[in-house]
Structure formats: C-alpha cells, structure tokens
C-alpha cells in the first residue's frame, strides 16, 4: 500500500454467554488517507480477527447501519476517517444507550417499536380515487417537511440524547422528527392521533433542549427543531382543551 500510516483501533468486544463484561481489544492496522473507520474495521475482520462483529451496508452514509461511538462521539463509521484520529489509539464502541448484542452490534428493537408507534405513513386528509389523480403539493408545502424526511434511522441522535439515556420511554429525537415529517405534510390527516403521543409523558416533554441530537445527525435533519416545534404545538393544545367547545 502506498503512503500507509499506522493507528491502533481499540475496539469494544462482548459476546453474550461467553463474556462476563465488555472488554477492549487492540488491533494495530495500517491505513491510507482515504480509509474510513469502517474500512479499518473491515480490514481487521478480513485479515486479523474474523470474529469481530459490526453492522454495515452502503459505505456511503445512506443506509444508517454503521452508527457507533467513535472516539466517544456517535458517528457513522463510513463517514469518519482514520486520518482524523492520529496518533490514536482510536476507541470504537457500540452506540450508547442501547443494549449490546455482540461487539459493536446493538439491539435496536426499542427504536423499531417507536417507529411503529408514530404512524409513519400518510393517512390521506381526503381520500381520492385513481381517476381524481395525484395529490398536488406546492414547493412551500414540500419545504415544511422535506428536511425531516431525510432521516436514515441511524440512531446516532439516540446515542447523543442524555434524556433517552436516563429514561428510554422517551420517544426520542429521530422518531419525533419523523412524526413531525408526517404531521407537517399537507396531504396527511392523522395529526390528532400523532399529537396524543407528542402530548404524552413519553412525548416531547422529556426533552431538555440539549441539542446534541442535531449536532451529530449526519443528514442535517435537526430533530431538536422538530421536538421544539412540537413542544409549542403541544403547549397550545394543552390550553386549547379549556376553551369552550373543545374536548
């Protein structure tokens, strides 16, 4: 390899049923300037230790599979470059706030459950037949939700969120951003159903506006903004209940 440098990867290892506690294992590797942390891990798995376990797929920050704690911060391994962590050693650990399944793989079932709870699809405000044609939207209407639709479900924001770490009942950043994506879509009519979740004790009110979720988001979704907008909406609905004619 041309122009290689050396760095030590310090990777958290844990095998359920075998390990009593997670341990750190060091892997010295050689890398070129264009190599990501993911490629470093792949080099270890292919040539040094085939038992090292991690998730990955697209290698280009689209699939959201390779989220992990890199040097203590939640990042996509494919989007972090080894050259930025010299002289090392570079600590690589599974995403925080999730149970470890094995090595760098975490159990994401809590997040998947949450996604299912937000009604993550459009329930048409007014049903149209095929003959009536498509639902039209103005560029301004698209702009209201578009950035929130860029979420790739990588869960970096959950690893960043101290409130989710304290109490995982909190709906959390990404699920709220996606909820907001559907709630602010002009074609959708299921806002009332989703607002019940927003208003609940598991909803937006567990957030203390730390903002780290938006900082670590690799797709600039800004979940903190989605949470904040829904705090305002939830506060309005809290008081609207007391107006005459409102339930």
């Amino acid at each position: 390899m041309a122009d290689t440098r050396k760095i030590v990867l310090e990777v958290l290892r844990y095998t359920p049923g075998q390990s009593t506690a997670p341990t750190l294992q060091q892997y010295p590797i050689e890398f070129t300037d264009d190599m990501s942390v993911l490629q470093g891990l792949q080099q270890v798995k292919d040539f040094v230790d085939g038992s090292l376990t991690f998730r990955w797929s697209c290698r280009m920050a689209i699939c959201g599979s390779c989220g992990m704690m890199i040097d203590g911060a939640p990042k996509l391994a494919c989007r972090a470059f080894l050259r930025d962590f010299l002289p090392g050693p570079l600590r690589v650990e599974p995403l925080e706030h999730f149970p470890i399944e094995r090595d760098l793989v975490v159990d994401i079932s809590d997040f998947v459950d949450k996604l299912g709870r937000i009604t993550p699809w459009i329930e048409p405000r007014e049903p149209r037949s095929l003959e009536q044609g498509e639902y039209l939207q103005t560029p301004a209407q698209l702009e209201r939700f578009e950035s929130f639709s860029h979420c790739i479900n990588c869960m970096l924001c959950y690893a960043a969120c101290p409130q989710y770490g304290l109490d995982s009942r909190f709906l959390g950043p990404a699920a709220t951003a996606l909820l907001h994506r559907y709630n602010s879509d002009s074609r959708d009519g299921a806002q009332a159903k989703r607002m019940e979740l927003v208003n609940s004790e598991e909803g937006v009110w567990a957030c203390t506006a730390v903002g780290y979720c938006s900082e670590v988001c690799p797709k600039a979704v800004d979940p903190a903004n989605a949470v904040n907008q829904n705090k305002t909406a939830s506060a309005v609905s809290w008081f609207a209940r007391f107006l005459p004619g409102r339930g």
């Binding site: 019940e196 979740l197 208003n199 609940s200 004790e201 598991e202 909803g203 009110w205 705090k231 939830s234 506060a235 809290w238 008081f239």
Partner: peptide, 12 residues
C-alpha cells in the same frame, strides 16, 4: 397515554 403536565410549567 397519560397527557404530560409539563406544558403548564414549561410556559411559566
């Protein structure tokens, strides 16, 4: 789902 009482305190 239980409605949170936080909006009241949050506005204050």
């Amino acid at each position: 789902m239980k409605r949170s009482n936080q909006p009241f305190f949050w506005l204050l």
